[in-house]
């Protein structure tokens, strides 16, 4: 069975439901990732976001999925999350406080002197650090899924060529 034929045989019901659900899943993933007052955090939110892209690939095929979420962007997001956490959230503490604070000590950011300590610390930890975690987790899971899917397809193609 060729790839084009399999794409044509995809179910209309699944595609319509996926189209309806994916935006809401992504919104929920963002809510879980950023909302520090509710349950969840970066790891859970990133996984929900990755699940939305996996649903996209399941419903519409790998090629459409790769068009929406290219692998180049995946690689960028993967490192960007780590940079957000380790680079910005950490180095800002040391450089901007001129060495007064330790690594990952958000209390040492000079903004804390202006706005008031705990509020600034909550902002950095709750939003920026968690978004950093979520972006890395999402990109990592989507990239692993793409690689596994590609392997499956190429094996099938080889099998078909033999017949």
């Amino acid at each position: 069975m060729s790839t084009e034929k399999r794409i044509q045989e995809r179910d209309v019901v699944i595609q319509t439901i996926a189209k309806l659900m994916i935006p809401f899943i992504q919104l929920y993933g963002l809510y879980v990732m950023v909302g520090t007052e509710g349950a969840g955090g970066g790891f859970q939110g990133g996984t929900v976001l990755a699940a939305s892209f996996i649903l996209l690939v399941v419903a519409f095929g790998v090629d459409k999925g790769r068009m929406k979420m290219p692998e180049g962007w995946n690689a960028v997001f993967k490192s960007l999350g780590l940079y957000l956490y380790a680079g910005v959230g950490g180095l800002l503490c040391i450089i901007l406080s001129l060495g007064a604070a330790e690594y990952l000590n958000y209390y040492g950011i000079p903004l804390a002197k202006i706005i008031g300590g705990p509020a600034t610390r909550g902002f950095w930890v709750g939003n920026i650090v968690e978004v950093g975690i979520g972006v890395t987790v999402m990109a990592a899971f989507v990239s692993i899924f793409y690689d596994l899917v590609r392997k499956e397809e190429s094996v099938e193609e080889e099998g078909g060529a033999e017949k």
Partner: peptide, 29 residues
């Protein structure tokens, strides 16, 4: 300044732990 005990533990008090958990996922990918 966080109203959530879990988040403050995960990302603030144990910041190093979470950072390297993230690195483990990155390495796996």
């Amino acid at each position: 300044g966080l109203p959530n005990m879990v988040t403050s533990g995960l990302a603030d008090y144990r910041g190093y732990d979470t950072m390297y958990e993230e690195t483990v996922i990155f390495t796996a990918a």
